[in-house]
């Protein structure tokens, strides 16, 4: 049973790259696992480590102050490419609980929602303003509230949020059904199995198109 998603507060990891594809989030060689766990080490592996395995000092996740942060502020169009659910698994395993971008690739967004990783899409201007805010106040905290569909901005110094024109709180859109499932911790497979009679009726009226066993 998934855990209900409660509000949380975190500082922000800025990663301005555009079109961060799922091959970057978790390179293919980590896909040989048959488990969901243990993927934190592979997260952004090729960006995090030099070929000899030592950390790249200039990559944001390697900065000591990033440890424990749960909000990733990503560049535009986050998560295109492969359908690998290992991408949200790896982000969650590292500790990320929400990604903010201008938009998300369809499969990534769905995969994220199935795992309680919140894909928060904001308009381009606010997205740019958030990067400005984090640059001006690297310790700014955000409270992400799924029930209220809002993000509250908690600057570490007065005035910076207003200067960046982000506002005190801002709303975000999220699929209302996915939101409900996440707030209640409802299991989607259980939800569909609860409607088995409808499936049986449909199947009775629609003969199978193929028999793969034939």
């Amino acid at each position: 049973m998934p855990e209900p998603v409660a509000p949380f507060t975190s500082r922000v990891i800025p990663l301005p790259a555009e079109n961060v594809d799922t091959d970057q989030i978790i390179p293919a060689r980590f896909l040989k696992t048959t488990e969901k766990s243990g993927l934190a080490e592979g997260l952004f592996y090729n960006w995090r480590y030099l070929p000899d395995g030592t950390p790249r000092p200039d990559f944001v996740l390697n900065r000591p102050e990033m440890a424990g942060r749960a909000v990733l502020l990503g560049g535009p169009n986050f998560g295109p490419g492969s359908s690998r659910e290992h991408a949200p698994w790896a982000l969650l395993a590292w500790g990320i609980r929400a990604v903010i971008s201008t938009g998300f690739a369809d499969i990534f967004r769905q995969n994220a929602l199935k795992n309680g990783l919140l894909p928060i899409a904001v308009p381009t201007e606010r997205h740019a303003a958030l990067f400005e805010l984090v640059a001006a106040d690297p310790d700014v905290e955000l409270t992400v509230d799924l029930a209220a569909q809002s993000v509250r901005v908690l600057p570490s110094r007065p005035g910076v949020a207003a200067a960046a024109a982000v506002g005190e709180t801002f709303p975000f859109e999220i699929d209302p059904f996915a939101r409900q499932m996440l707030l209640e911790g409802t299991d989607e497979i259980g939800y569909v199995l609860g409607r088995l009679p409808a499936i049986e009726t449909w199947e009775a009226a629609h003969p199978a198109r193929v028999n793969t066993l034939a």
Binding site: K36, S83, E85, I107, Q110, N111, K114, N115, I189, V192
Partner: peptide
């Protein structure tokens, strides 16, 4: 689809 949907 992702793996959760595969299970579905």
């Amino acid at each position: 689809i992702g793996t959760s949907e595969v299970e579905m």
